[in-house]
């Protein structure tokens, strides 16, 4: 069956993409893992032959003057804050996104296509610029502030911009399409006669939703949660722009290591930890639903 020419042709077709991804994606990730266990050089860079777990120790402990280790919670707080904000974003997009996906799935074919395009457009447009738009809306004297003032609801300045609340608003806004699209993809295949059948068998709306619709939507919901949680966790400029310096997240901490802090191994260790968490989540998802998230 195996025609050597077919095999060769296939290999040649796959080579450019495969090699590009291997050399410029897989190898760099490995290199990053290796650099995370090296000693930092004084002005950025690493000492190539000096193995050290300092980068991972540094996350938990601080070295005192007498070289003893004392627990340092600063980095853990940043991780915790990142997980909380990303978790909140996931929950909020789910609460907003599931009904939206359901609504779209219940329209006729043409309307569905249009609404999906409407959901997709923000997905493809510049997120940096759209984050900036929220700065216009949220800042003191901005539209929401003056709008509330005009209605007599505002009591002084809004003071939302440069707080974790602003970051949360930005996250929900940015990642909502990532939640709606996979849930919609699950619901699209739904045979709605099943729901009718559930009603005929005496189920009320809530039971029908919980026992018939929700199980169908589950792979989409799980994929959506991953697709929101992961980019939110590693987000850099949304907390940078909307959160000000105060609500530092993992992404900002990583960027710092290549900017002012000049500690490449620590930056590599943080990135590598993030990567490991993501891959773990992927494996769990693929095992559970037997398909890649987003498919």
């Amino acid at each position: 069956m195996r025609d050597p020419r077919t095999v060769l042709r296939r290999a040649l077709l796959l080579a450019p993409t495969g090699l590009t991804l291997f050399v410029f994606m897989v190898i760099p990730m490995g290199l990053m893992g290796w650099m995370s266990v090296l000693e930092p050089d004084t002005y950025g860079g690493v000492r190539w032959h000096a193995l050290s777990l300092d980068a991972y120790v540094q996350f938990w402990y601080e070295r005192d003057l007498d070289d003893s280790l004392i627990l340092n919670t600063a980095y853990m707080e940043i991780f915790l804050r990142s997980f909380l904000l990303a978790g909140f974003a996931t929950l909020a997009t789910l609460v907003l996104g599931f009904p939206t996906a359901l609504y779209i799935a219940l329209q006729d074919e043409r309307t569905r296509q249009r609404l999906i395009l409407l959901i997709s457009i923000p997905f493809w447009t510049n997120l940096l610029v759209r984050t900036y738009a929220w700065m216009l809306l949220l800042r003191n004297g901005g539209l929401i502030d003056s709008g509330l003032g005009a209605l007599g609801l505002g009591s002084g300045a809004l003071d939302v911009l440069y707080t974790p609340t602003a970051v949360a608003i930005g996250f929900v806004y940015s990642f909502l399409p990532f939640m709606v699209l996979p849930i919609y993809t699950s619901l699209e295949k739904m045979d709605w006669r099943l729901v009718e059948a559930a009603f005929d068998l005496g189920a009320n709306r809530w039971t029908a939703l919980r026992r018939v619709v929700l199980p169908m939507a589950l792979p989409g919901i799980a994929a959506g949660c991953l697709l929101v949680f992961i980019p939110a966790l590693g987000s850099y400029y949304i907390p940078e722009l909307l959160g000000g310096g105060k609500s530092l997240m993992i992404g900002n901490l990583i960027q710092n290591q290549f900017g002012t802090a000049r500690n490449w191994p620590f930056g590599a260790a943080l990135s590598f930890t993030l990567l490991a968490l993501v891959l773990l989540a992927m494996i769990v998802y693929t095992r559970r639903f037997r398909q890649a998230p987003g498919e």
């Binding site: 410029f24 760099p28 590693g234 590599a268 993030l274 987003g294």
Partner: peptide, 22 residues
């Protein structure tokens, strides 16, 4: 398939750091 999925699934900041170091 897995390699093609990597750029989509890995957080941008991780790809950015890995590429920079490389």
């Amino acid at each position: 398939n897995a390699m093609l999925g990597l750029p989509l699934l890995v957080p941008e900041i991780v790809t950015a750091v890995a590429s920079l170091l490389f």
